[in-house]
C-alpha cells in the first residue's frame, strides 16, 4: 500500500506564550488517540519542546520561546500530524481483579434498568484503552465504556473516594489511585496499586495501555 497523507484537521491554540494545545479531534476515538500519543512522542524529541502530553484527542505542548516561535512550532505540529503515524504496538495488557461491591452499584443498575450481575458482566467484558494519564498521579481515563453503561456524573461529587475504587461516568471508566474527591459512580474496588511513587514513571498505566477487569469474590 502506498504511503498516504491523511487529512487530519489540527486546530492549534495558544496556551499563553510558552505552550500550545493541538486538537486532533472532538470524540473519544482510538485512532485519534493513537495519533495524539504518536504526535506527543514525536514532539518530545525536539530540543525546543520542554514537554508534550497527549490528551484524549489532543496534545499539550510546552516549549521554550527563546528557541522557537509559536507560529513555527504550530507549522511543525501540522507537518508531523499529517504524517501517517507509525503502526502502533499494542499497549501492555493489565488484568485487574475487581470486587464489584461499590456503594453505587445498586443505584447504577436501577438507573440503567439492568441487574447488578449484568452491570458487572458488561463492565468486565471489554478490553479498555488508557486514553490519557493525568488529573491526579496514576489516574487513567479508560474507555470506551459500552453504551449500555453510560450515565452522567453524580450530581453531588463525594468529598472522599477511597483509593482503589473502580468507577464509571459517561463513556469512561477508571480507578481512583489516591483518596480524593470524585463525582463518578463507584461500582467496585481493586487492591492493585496504580500510583507507584517509588518507581519512575510512577504510574502503573501508560497512555495506550490496555486494561481488562475481571470479577473476584473478595
Amino acid at each position: 500500500m502506498p504511503p498516504q497523507r491523511s487529512t487530519v484537521k489540527v486546530r492549534i491554540h495558544p496556551l499563553g506564550d510558552t505552550a500550545l494545545l493541538a486538537e486532533l479531534g472532538t470524540r473519544l476515538d482510538t485512532a485519534v488517540n493513537t495519533r495524539s500519543i504518536a504526535l506527543a512522542s514525536a514532539l518530545k524529541k525536539r530540543r525546543d519542546v520542554r514537554q508534550a502530553v497527549a490528551g484524549a484527542a489532543s496534545v499539550t505542548v510546552q516549549f521554550d520561546p527563546d528557541q522557537v516561535t509559536h507560529v513555527a512550532l504550530a507549522a511543525a505540529i501540522r507537518r508531523l500530524a499529517s504524517k501517517r503515524p507509525p503502526m502502533e504496538e499494542p499497549g501492555r495488557l493489565h488484568r485487574i481483579p475487581v470486587v464489584y461491591d461499590g456503594p453505587d452499584l445498586q443505584a447504577v443498575a436501577s438507573a440503567l434498568g439492568l441487574s447488578q450481575q449484568k452491570v458487572v458482566e458488561i463492565h468486565s467484558r471489554p478490553i479498555y484503552r488508557a486514553f490519557l494519564i493525568g488529573f491526579v498521579p496514576g489516574w487513567a481515563y479508560l474507555g470506551p465504556l459500552p453504551d449500555e453503561l453510560v450515565l452522567p456524573r453524580r450530581p453531588d461529587p463525594r468529598r472522599q473516594v477511597p483509593a482503589g475504587s473502580v468507577a464509571i461516568a459517561g463513556h469512561q471508566t477508571g480507578i481512583y489511585p489516591l483518596n480524593s474527591p470524585g463525582g463518578w459512580h463507584l461500582i467496585g474496588r481493586t487492591s492493585v496499586r496504580l500510583f507507584l511513587p517509588d518507581s519512575d514513571p510512577p504510574s502503573l498505566f501508560r497512555a495506550g495501555d490496555r486494561v481488562k477487569f475481571f470479577p473476584i469474590a473478595e
Binding site: T26, S58, G134
Partner: peptide, 12 residues
C-alpha cells in the same frame, strides 16, 4: 458540550 480531557499548564 462537555470537552474531552486534555493536558493543562500552570497559568491556565
Amino acid at each position: 458540550e462537555e470537552l474531552l480531557s486534555f493536558g493543562l499548564v500552570a497559568g491556565a
